[in-house]
Amino acid sequence: MRKQPGVLLPLVVGIVALLGFGALWLVLEPDMGSPASTLVWLLSELVFALALAVPAVCLFFVIRAMHIRRVQAREATGPDAVGVARARDLLWSLSHGLLPQTESAGSLPTDATEPVFLAGRFLAARHALPAPSLRRMRANARDLERSGRGWTALTPVEIAATDRRILLRSNDVLWDIRYSDIAEVHVEVGRVILCLQGQEPVLVEGDVAESLAVLAVWGSVGESALRRHPALASLRT
């Protein structure tokens, strides 16, 4: 296990430096009116600069240590927690009008003009009915491996989510899901269900399925819906 960087030491050093150099500057500053105070004035300016620079450097190390601790905590809690944390970061970025970093679509046939925001290998299944009961569909999806009622078996798929659509390919079958065709989005930890207009629902399972749900809401409903869509309520907390 990697050693966690300390937060207390740079925080204490920064506070002590701010108070100490600040007090020393206050002591030296009134002597500036004296005719023979050039040396004192130089010392006063140096102390003032240190009173600002040292706490600033310490603050940088405090923020850096907190960030490293946060990343290590995500890695230690397993892939599900990492997926939720990544989805929350993506939700925050898109809610503030910031596009995430692009990724490679791999072998999926994306257009050269559409950026790929999420790509990887997942597990996916399709429902047998175009418009099944939502309650039963979600209940069966939670116990998919045992029940399988209504759903096909989970199969490995390659996925690329762009700014226009979600591409899924299993063996030689390519699913092209336009955001405009997505009617509803339902998300759980490690799993997302996309209900499509006039088509069978699609279930996607993987460690970043929540990020796929965020992109599905963003593309199908719009940026403003990210702050109020019920499917993303758990990611906004």
Rank of each mutant, 00 (worst) to 15 (best):
4 Q>E: 15
4 Q>I: 13
7 V>N: 11
10 P>A: 08
11 L>M: 15
11 L>C: 13
13 V>I: 15
18 L>Q: 09
19 L>F: 10
22 G>H: 07
23 A>D: 00
24 L>T: 12
28 L>R: 03
29 E>A: 15
32 M>G: 07
33 G>E: 08
35 P>S: 02
36 A>E: 13
43 L>P: 03
44 S>Y: 06
49 A>P: 02
49 A>S: 14
51 A>L: 05
53 A>V: 15
59 L>M: 09
62 V>I: 12
64 R>H: 06
67 H>W: 12
70 R>I: 03
71 V>T: 09
71 V>C: 05
72 Q>H: 10
75 E>V: 07
75 E>S: 13
77 T>A: 15
78 G>I: 02
80 D>R: 15
81 A>T: 14
87 A>F: 02
90 L>D: 06
93 S>G: 06
94 L>N: 04
94 L>I: 03
106 G>T: 10
108 L>I: 04
109 P>D: 12
109 P>W: 05
112 A>F: 06
114 E>P: 00
118 L>D: 13
119 A>T: 10
127 H>A: 04
128 A>K: 00
138 R>N: 07
138 R>P: 00
139 A>Q: 04
143 D>E: 15
145 E>Q: 14
146 R>N: 10
147 S>D: 11
149 R>S: 03
150 G>W: 01
152 T>A: 12
152 T>R: 08
152 T>P: 01
154 L>R: 12
154 L>D: 08
157 V>I: 14
160 A>M: 07
161 A>G: 08
163 D>L: 02
167 L>S: 05
172 D>W: 01
174 L>F: 06
177 I>K: 02
177 I>T: 10
182 I>H: 04
183 A>W: 00
185 V>G: 07
189 V>G: 09
190 G>F: 13
191 R>L: 14
191 R>E: 12
193 I>H: 11
195 C>V: 09
198 G>H: 05
199 Q>P: 01
202 V>R: 05
204 V>R: 05
205 E>S: 15
210 E>D: 12
212 L>R: 05
212 L>I: 03
212 L>E: 07
213 A>W: 01
213 A>D: 04
213 A>P: 02
215 L>R: 07
216 A>C: 04
217 V>W: 01
221 V>P: 00
222 G>P: 02
226 L>E: 10
229 H>L: 02
233 A>F: 00
234 S>I: 05
234 S>V: 10
236 R>G: 08
